[in-house]
């Protein structure tokens, strides 16, 4: 009997797309928000991060097709990544930003030359988080609809675990980003 690996391919495709889109879309707005002290922005970010898991899971039912699943995943992933990036950018040494402003660097240039190199690891870590979480979410939706078997289920769990490990490594002292994060 041949094993049906399609649940693994589906979760991989959805999880990769969601984490990549979140990784590309979130950092710049996060930087923009981190530079401004708007209570409303923080409130909105918090509210968006509260999208109920049930809605996401329901949308992610494979019957609706993978583009819907990706949309559902993004509904949670983008606010999450944005919040993580915003927090990381707010921890950035304000002296570095001031020095860049003295040099005449634009907001975009400060983002590219200062914020991303120094806090980009936080964005990558958030994306790895999102990847692992989306993998499992899609897997659960498939299991509920009865299309999941043991082999792809185990493969999905292992892939999600690898995502978690990647995140741990990104935040650890051994990663190539550790030097930038270390406070002097």
């Amino acid at each position: 009997m041949t094993v049906d690996w399609s649940p693994l391919w589906l979760s991989l495709r959805v999880a990769l797309m969601v984490s990549l889109v979140a990784l590309v879309a979130a950092p710049w707005p996060a930087w923009w928000l981190a530079r401004r002290h708007w209570p409303v922005a923080a409130l909105l970010a918090r509210f968006l991060s509260l999208v109920p898991a049930v809605i996401v899971a329901a949308l992610a039912m494979p019957a609706s097709g993978w583009p819907v699943a990706v949309t559902a995943g993004l509904l949670r992933a983008v606010p999450y990544t944005l919040a993580k990036c915003r927090a990381a950018f707010q921890r950035l040494d304000p002296g570095l930003v001031k020095a860049a402003r003295m040099a005449g660097a634009s907001d975009w240039r400060i983002f590219r030359a200062v914020a991303l190199p120094l806090s980009g690891a936080a964005a990558l870590a958030a994306a790895a988080d999102v990847f692992a979480e989306t993998m499992l979410e899609v897997a659960v939706a498939l299991a509920i609809s009865g299309r999941m078997t043991a082999a792809p289920g185990a493969a999905i769990a292992l892939t999600a675990l690898a995502g978690c490990a990647l995140r741990q490594w990104l935040r650890s002292a051994g990663s190539p980003f550790a030097a930038e994060q270390a406070p002097r």
Binding site: G95, K98, A99, M102, V114, P117, A179, E180
Partner: peptide, 14 residues
């Protein structure tokens, strides 16, 4: 037209 030397040296660490 101002140069500024901050209290903690804020050189880009990377």
């Amino acid at each position: 037209g101002c140069g500024y030397v901050s209290q903690a040296d804020s050189l880009l660490p990377h």
